[in-house]
Design a protein around this nucleic acid. Sequence first.
DNA 1: AAATCGGGGTC
DNA 2: GACCCAGATTT
Length: 350
Amino acid sequence: MVFSNILIHWYLQNKRDLPWRKTHEPYHIWLSEIMLQQTRIEQGLPYYYKFIEAYPTVFDLANASTDEVMKLWQGLGYYSRARNLHETSKYVANELNGKFPDTYKSLLKLKGVGDYTASAIASICYNEPVAVVDGNVYRVLSRIYGIDTPINSTAGVKEFKSLATELLNKKDPATFNQAIMEFGALHCKPQNPYCETCPFNDKCLALKDSSIKELPVKLKKTKVKKRYFNYLVFDLENNETILEQRSGKGIWNGLYQFPLIESEKLIGKNELKQYESFIEFIEGENYSLELYNEDPVIHKLSHQHLFTRFWLVNSNEAPKKTVSLDKVLDYPVPVLIGNFLNEYLSDDYK
DNA sequence: AAATCGGGGTC
DNA sequence: GACCCAGATTT
C-alpha cells in the first residue's frame, strides 16, 4: 500500500471528534489554525468555542475592540497572533466583503498566515493540493524516512516540504493533511511512540536502526534569560489602583499590568526607592510601601524566567489616572498578573 | 540564520 | 530541567 492510503486508513479509524472538522468554512478553519499555532489542541479548544460564540462571523470579530479580543485571548500566549487575527478580520470584512482569499498564494499574504496556515486553509477549505508541514509532520517523516536534516534549518524546511508534497494525496489533500498531523499527535508521539502497533513499523527507518529517540533533529535552543520584575500595586482610597498598557516589541505587547520597575537582581525596599521611575510615581513623602511576597514568583516563559515581586503602595494622592481594583480583571492581563490578582483580591490580607 | 514571542503538558 | 506544541515574524 501507498503511504497516503495507509495513513488515511489509520486516520479514519482513529481521528478525534473536533469542532473544526465539522466544517469547511474558511472563517472557522482560519480561526482554529491561528489559535493552534504552537499550541496543543486541548489548550486551544476552549478558546475556539469562546471565540465562535462571541464572534459567529468574521464581521463580528472585525467590529470588536482590540482590548475585547485580547481579553478573550488572555492565557493563550503569543499575543501577536491575536493582534494579527483582529487586523486580518477587519481586512477580510471591510476590504473583501467577508470573503476569505481562496488560494495558497493569496492566503499567504494575510497577516499571521505563514506557509503552514496557508497550506492548511487552502487544502481544507478549497481542496488545493498543498502539503502542511508542522511539528507533527517533521516528526513523522523524519522517523519513517530516517531524515536527520535539522528541521529548523533552511535545508530542512525545504526538504520536508518537498517530501510532504510528494507524499500528499492530491485527490484529497484535506484528509491527508489532517491525517498526518493527527497521526503525529496521537501515535508517532515525541516520547514513547506506539511503534509496536504502528502501521508503518515494517518500513520505518528510524525504528529499523533504533534512532526513534534521536529524530527529528533540531538545532540548538537559545538559553533562558533571568529578569527581575517589581510591580507597584497601588491600593488607594476606594480600592483604586494604577494600570499601564505594555507597548513595544517585547513580551505581552498590548496587555495591561501594574507599573513595573525592572532591576538587575532581587532588590529590597531601600534599593527600590532609589529608582528614578519609583520616585516619579511617589510625588510626596506621604506613602507606605510594603512587600507582598518575600519569595519571588517565578513565571517561566520560553526564553525568560521572570522573578517577580509585588509591592503594595498606598499614598494620599493618586499619582496618575486610577482604575478600580475590581475592574482590573476586565482588562487583558498576562497570566502572571491575573494569578496575583486572583490571590490578592480573595485575600483578607488587608 | 538566529532570535523572539507564552503558557501548559510530558517525562 | 529539557523538550514539545496544527508557526510567524523580526532582527
